[in-house]
């Protein structure tokens, strides 16, 4: 039995299953982070006082992390492009760099977190720190999810390149879309939490 439209696009929608499914998933993710942003706004408007992020959080570290994520977005899209060019070796290099970038992001995040804990700052300290830890924590979980998916596509999942290159390229594209979304969320998190 074969599932239709795994590889070939659907005549009406013009996309294959994985891509449509992934965009639907992203729509749901928009709502998840939307609900959290909405909570952030409500809490902030209701608060008696609200600290400016930069007085508590480490802006240089976060700026660095922003650049790391943007760079990883470029590499993940390049890895997909390499597959389109039939250059599997380059794909592995670019995907590898993407995963390394993700780890760098998490390591920086780890230092940020521990620095806060060392100063006795935790989610219990204030609503601002609570929302900071919750949203960035959830974002970090998304990063970890991305590492798992990209790691799979670099490691065991890459075998599919030999058997079904087109479906494999589709998978890399879908994983890339997810990764861009993680980047996109951070692009909003950074100014909202650190700068305002």
């Amino acid at each position: 039995m074969e599932i239709p439209h795994v590889v070939e696009v659907h005549p009406e929608t013009g996309v294959a299953n994985a891509k449509l499914g992934l965009w639907l998933f992203l729509a749901s993710e928009v709502m998840l982070f939307g609900a959290l942003f909405s909570s952030y706004i409500l809490l902030r408007v209701a608060a008696v006082e609200w600290p400016q992020g930069s007085t508590i959080l480490n802006v240089p570290m976060a700026t660095f992390n922003t650049l790391v994520l943007i760079a990883s977005s470029v590499t993940v899209v390049m890895s997909w492009l390499s597959l389109k060019l039939n250059d599997f070796a380059k794909y592995r290099v670019y995907m590898g760099i993407t995963i390394v970038c993700a780890f760098i992001f998490l390591i920086v995040k780890y230092f940020e977190y521990t620095a806060k804990f060392d100063h006795g700052l935790s989610p219990a300290t204030s609503t601002f720190l609570a929302i900071y830890f919750t949203i960035t924590g959830l974002h970090a979980i998304h990063i970890i999810g991305g590492i798992v998916v990209n790691g799979y596509l670099l490691g065991p999942g890459a075998r599919m390149w030999k058997t079904d290159p087109e479906q494999f390229t589709g998978r890399v594209e879908a994983a890339g879309l997810y990764w861009h979304f993680v980047d996109l969320v951070w692009i909003f998190l950074f100014p909202v939490l650190y700068l305002l």
């Binding site: 998840l32 609900a35 909570s39 935790s122 989610p123 219990a124 609570a130 830890f133 919750t134 959830l138």
Partner: peptide, 16 residues
């Protein structure tokens, strides 16, 4: 999102 926030309130002592 709401469950995550409530989870934070209960487990990590935040005050959402």
């Amino acid at each position: 999102a709401a469950s995550t926030l409530q989870f934070m309130d209960r487990v990590f002592g935040s005050s959402f």
